[in-house]
Simulated assay, not measured.
Amino acid sequence: MVIPWHGWPLDRIVILLLGFMYLLIFLQVTLYHYRQNFRHWSMWIPVIATPVDGLLLVWLSFHNAGWLRATSILLIAVSMLAGVFGSYMHWRGIGERVGGYTMRNFLVGPPAALPGLITGTSLLGLIALYWR
């Protein structure tokens, strides 16, 4: 069954693309946290949340049910808060390395921008879900 793209509103297209973005972020986050052997319990949060968010948004773009939209809003809001917490943990992790906040620690330590990417993606998702 082919679903025509002609006539799709911008918010629906953005929701679909954000779903794919979450799935790609899931791959990167899983590789980084696996590399660190999931040393802290909080490393599991984005590994579990990003594929759930991604699949929900892809599903929502094809099936606009009220309960699915409400569930997506709730889980994406939680992911946004988790991204803020992840930013704190990553910056703290960089500072705890030998030498503190040096360029070398930014290069080899936890990626400082990746939790911000989750936060930004979640914020954009909430904007798209509330778009009227």
Rank of each mutant, 00 (worst) to 15 (best):
W5S: 12
H6G: 11
H6E: 12
P9R: 01
P9T: 01
L10K: 10
D11A: 06
I13H: 03
I13F: 05
V14G: 00
I15G: 02
G19P: 01
L24Y: 08
I25M: 15
L27D: 05
Y32N: 15
H33Q: 15
Q36P: 05
S42F: 15
M43F: 14
P46C: 07
V47W: 04
V47G: 03
V47S: 08
T50L: 12
L55A: 03
L57E: 01
V58H: 00
H63D: 10
A70M: 09
T71F: 08
S72H: 04
L74G: 08
L75I: 13
A77Q: 02
S79I: 01
M80Y: 03
M80E: 05
L81T: 04
L81G: 09
F85H: 08
F85T: 14
S87D: 11
S87V: 11
Y88T: 09
Y88S: 09
M89A: 14
H90Y: 14
H90T: 13
R92D: 11
G93V: 15
V98N: 11
R104L: 11
F106R: 02
F106W: 04
L107M: 09
A112Y: 06
A112G: 05
A113I: 12
L114G: 08
L114I: 13
G116Q: 10
T119R: 02
G120K: 02
S122H: 00
Y130I: 11
W131H: 08
W131Y: 12
